[in-house]
Design a protein around this nucleic acid. Structure first.
Lengths: 300, 300
DNA sequence: ATGTGCGTTGCCTTTCACGCAACAGATAAT
DNA sequence: ATTATCTGTTGCGTGAAAGGCAACGCACAT
């Protein structure tokens, strides 16, 4: 038995109003329940119930604890159902809809994790534009969606979000590389190679550049992120990406990431979503939970 | 002890990778942990760990269960902290910022609930316009915010939301009263008394009326909801409100609520929010949890 | 005054988690 | 190839904790 019987005792006593009735429903002796509650109250150092003549009423502390207890019991029920649905077949299928930039930066580690832990689970990753991700998740063609600037929708449930800082990216021998952060003005002196407006990050940057009124020239735009990185490596050009786009290159010392101030450019919001209606099966929940932790860890 | 030691066992074994190491950290015998895990696996009918030569690796089922276990342990930690903060003083203070329509419809029952269960908790309810609610919660002048069309904000955490249907409200002897639902066109034949644009519901209705291109005349606008109800009672006028605005009058048979189709008018979104940073103390959590259940129950 | 239903407590039994020691299997070191 | 080491696992005995039963004291309803 995973959970202590205590949980059911508290729930049932709060629900029934008296210990004896709760004991009857749970098929145990009233004295047993009573003793456990008294012991718990002593351990917590605070009464959980107010003893009225004909009723056990929850105190503030009790109300607080019972919410946690019921949440736990409900959550356990869900897990049991998922386990039952999975019993027998050891396999599973998870369909993830995401964006190009994420597929090459964040997902390799996730795929590795999944292959190591659960090799029997089939994982399909579809790279789509933003609106197509929303449509795929809504239509049930994908179980999970992971992307930037996904707008809130009552038919979608956000599982996690993180605000990613944008920054200038330059080669290690670039004049700016020694600094810890830069402003848009600092970058204006160098040739810029930036994502075009079809990339969500490009839209944010275009907006920021217009607002800052910095005089920029020699701007090259593209929607190929890998091209941006390659171009910056040779020469003194500057490009703009977010933290995870250049994660691997930073660790290898091939590229330098210089954060821009929040006042100049909005953060890029990464969201993990699922359909509001409908539940995830076991394998899907496992990936969802792992992705949730990955995303939440980004906002450091 | 509220929770079974089993929870810590699973958590620590998954974390440490071996039973013996987990046993060492938890100061128990490895055999004890081992037996409990085996028993649980038998009970659930599925292995939780894959026994590798030097490691216990979670299976899909195990991954699923461990997520539940850790969530439970974290949640319990929060509750213990709240309980500790409350120890000694039996009182508490909760400051709720909300709107006029809600204060007269939804909150009376909540206030009664709170007074019955926790009379020592001081509850202040402040009726404010929408933007002032956001400002109050953000500034820490209110612990909780409850209102319509509260926009999402990274600095605010949504605790619950519900999409409320709008509908026409008429007297029981009105020609439309026998129907189960109406369209905007059906209402055009009658004098309309609608909330003005300063009320969130009025803004939604004005938008819907313009879009529907229904010819309406003899329209009276006001920001006093109670006035709307009173006016509809005498004569054959029609007004537009949401479900909970007329909840009490519906039960008494004094007014009839006729839902409008979702295609003609958007639903009114009710949200319960708190500050993203900062935690609630015990008394505040109790009210928040109760309000959460109330709000979630609305979307039936 | 009486009866009913409640929480609580004393006494006893039963169950279950625990610790210790030993075993079997697989890897790592020699 | 042999030894050493680390792993999960199992048999057995012990002790703590939960459970069951009956009785007590209290408050309310009749």
């Amino acid at each position: 038995m995973l959970h202590a019987r205590m949980l059911s005792y508290l729930d049932e006593v709060a629900r029934a109003g008296t210990i004896r009735r709760a004991a009857e429903r749970l098929h145990v002796a009233a004295s047993s329940i009573n003793r456990q509650i008294i012991a718990l109250e002593a351990e917590l150092g605070t009464p959980l119930f107010e003893r009225l003549p004909r009723q056990m009423r929850l105190t503030v502390a009790g109300e607080l604890l019972i919410a946690h207890v019921r949440q736990t019991l409900r959550s356990y029920d869900v897990v049991l159902t998922q386990l039952a649905n999975m019993k027998g077949r050891r396999t599973g299928l998870v369909r993830l809809a995401t964006m190009g930039g994420i597929a090459t930066s964040l997902l390799p580690a996730v795929v590795t994790w999944m292959r190591e832990r659960h090799p029997a689970v089939k994982l399909t990753i579809q790279v789509l534009p933003r609106d197509a991700i929303l449509a795929a998740v809504l239509a049930g063609d994908a179980d999970l969606g992971l992307g930037y600037q996904l707008p809130p929708d009552p038919k979608l449930r956000p599982l996690a979000r993180a605000g990613l800082r944008l920054g200038a990216v330059v080669a290690p021998d670039h004049p700016l590389a020694a600094r810890r952060g830069v402003s848009l003005g600092d970058c204006a002196a160098y040739p810029m190679i930036i994502p075009d407006r079809s990339v969500t990050l490009g839209a944010l940057m275009a907006e920021a550049l217009e607002r800052s009124a910095v005089a920029v020239d020699r701007v090259i735009e593209t929607n190929a992120i890998e091209l941006l990185k390659a171009a910056v490596l040779t020469g003194n050009a500057v490009t703009f990406l977010n933290e995870i786009d250049v994660q691997t290159e930073r660790q290898r010392g091939q590229l330098v990431f210089l954060p821009l101030p929040d006042s100049q450019v909005a953060r890029q919001e990464l969201r993990l979503i699922q359909r509001a209606r409908g539940t995830l099966d076991a394998a899907q929940s496992v990936l969802a939970e792992h992705l949730r932790e990955v995303v939440l860890a980004l906002e450091g």
